[in-house]
Simulated scan of single mutants.
Amino acid sequence: MSLEIELRNLASLFKGKLNTYLVDFATEYIDHGENCLALETLCDYLCEENVALSEHEYQELLRLGQLVGADLDTGRSKYLQTLVSNR
């Protein structure tokens, strides 16, 4: 499975938790070859909206973040971790 498809699949998991417009806006970056920006934007929206994450969603964000070279080692990943609901 391509990285772009994995990113789109992950983003689609948040369509019920996050405004669809925001998810679509973030994934539009994938269409332009900006996978890193797409993931960072999605993470920013998740943080801004305080979206509850499952452990699986959180781990996928981190895994894909590493693959695309996203800056998730800063406060962003720490804040995302606080959104994990099964802790």
Rank of each mutant, 00 (worst) to 15 (best):
M1D: 03
S2T: 02
S2R: 02
L3T: 00
E4D: 09
E6H: 03
E6L: 02
E6F: 00
L7K: 02
R8D: 04
R8F: 02
L10C: 04
L10N: 01
A11L: 05
S12K: 12
S12Q: 12
F14S: 03
F14D: 05
F14W: 04
G16I: 04
K17P: 04
K17I: 03
L18K: 06
N19F: 14
L22N: 12
L22H: 08
V23D: 10
D24N: 14
D24S: 13
D24W: 00
T27V: 10
T27M: 09
T27D: 01
T27K: 05
T27A: 02
E28T: 13
E28K: 12
I30N: 04
H32V: 05
H32Y: 15
H32M: 04
G33V: 01
G33R: 03
E34P: 00
N35R: 06
C36N: 10
C36V: 07
L39R: 05
L39T: 05
T41D: 13
L42F: 11
C43W: 07
C43T: 09
D44A: 11
Y45T: 02
L46F: 15
L46Y: 14
C47V: 15
E48H: 14
E49A: 15
V51M: 07
L53S: 07
S54G: 12
H56W: 13
E57H: 07
E57A: 12
E57V: 06
E57G: 11
E57F: 07
Y58S: 09
L61G: 07
R63Y: 11
L64Q: 01
L64I: 04
G65A: 15
L67W: 04
V68F: 01
G69S: 01
A70C: 11
D71G: 06
D71M: 06
L72I: 05
L72H: 09
D73N: 12
T74S: 14
G75I: 06
S77Y: 11
K78Q: 06
Y79P: 10
L80E: 02
Q81G: 13
V84G: 07
N86D: 13
N86G: 09
R87F: 14
R87C: 05
